[in-house]
């Protein structure tokens, strides 16, 4: 720990951190499931980041650093306020959904895509969010989640498969054929 580090300036922090507000808010919304909760979690993440800005190395990836803090804050928020049983166990879900490999049909709305994403287990959802939505590399995602790269890859693979299966099942329930389900 650096004992006598230079006192960080709020303007520097705001310039480095606030451009990522939109990305953090979007991800927080998917992590805690509600815009109002996301609002709280993002505020908390920025507060923690500001208090620790002296530990941030200029020139390194500020966005990844903020996301790492955000995931910690979201985790604490969920433990404090949300019932962990709200999201079923990963293995349970995998057994419940039919096998399919189609992309979502155009007739499936963005809201339905997000609902399917929200329904997959938290660990898988986090990997999908970081790589597919926030476009982090596997290495950065592993750093943010504090797991090995191999774990990110397996969570990503399983999370995407769950998503495909859920959306394929939804397409079938709408009477879309497998061919329609494949449309881009």
């Amino acid at each position: 720990m650096r004992l006598f580090s230079r006192k960080p300036r709020l303007e520097e922090f705001e310039a480095a951190a606030l451009p990522h507000l939109g990305d953090l808010y979007r991800t927080a919304t998917r992590l805690v499931g509600d815009p109002a909760r996301a609002d709280d979690v993002v505020q908390e993440a920025y507060l923690v980041a500001w208090k620790n800005f002296d530990r941030f190395e200029p020139g390194t990836n500020c966005r990844a650093w903020l996301f790492r803090i955000l995931f910690h804050c979201a985790h604490h928020y969920r433990r404090k306020w949300l019932n962990p049983r709200e999201v079923p166990d990963a293995g349970e879900i995998i057994e419940q959904v039919p096998a399919a490999s189609a992309a979502p049909s155009d007739r499936i709305t963005d809201e339905e895509v997000l609902r399917a994403l929200d329904a997959i287990p938290e660990d898988y959802r986090a990997a999908v969010l970081l790589v597919d939505v926030d476009e982090f590399s596997y290495k950065d995602a592993a750093g943010i989640l504090e797991v090995p790269i191999g774990t990110v890859m397996s969570r990503l693979s399983r999370g995407r498969k769950l998503l495909r299966d859920r959306l394929a099942a939804l397409a079938q329930s709408y009477g879309l054929t497998n061919r329609e389900g494949m449309s881009a």
Binding site: P104, D110, V113, L117, D132, V133, L163, R164
Partner: peptide, 10 residues
């Protein structure tokens, strides 16, 4: 396609 849809929706 799934990746693009998820990204666009989120």
């Amino acid at each position: 396609t799934l990746k693009s849809r998820v990204r666009a929706a989120a």
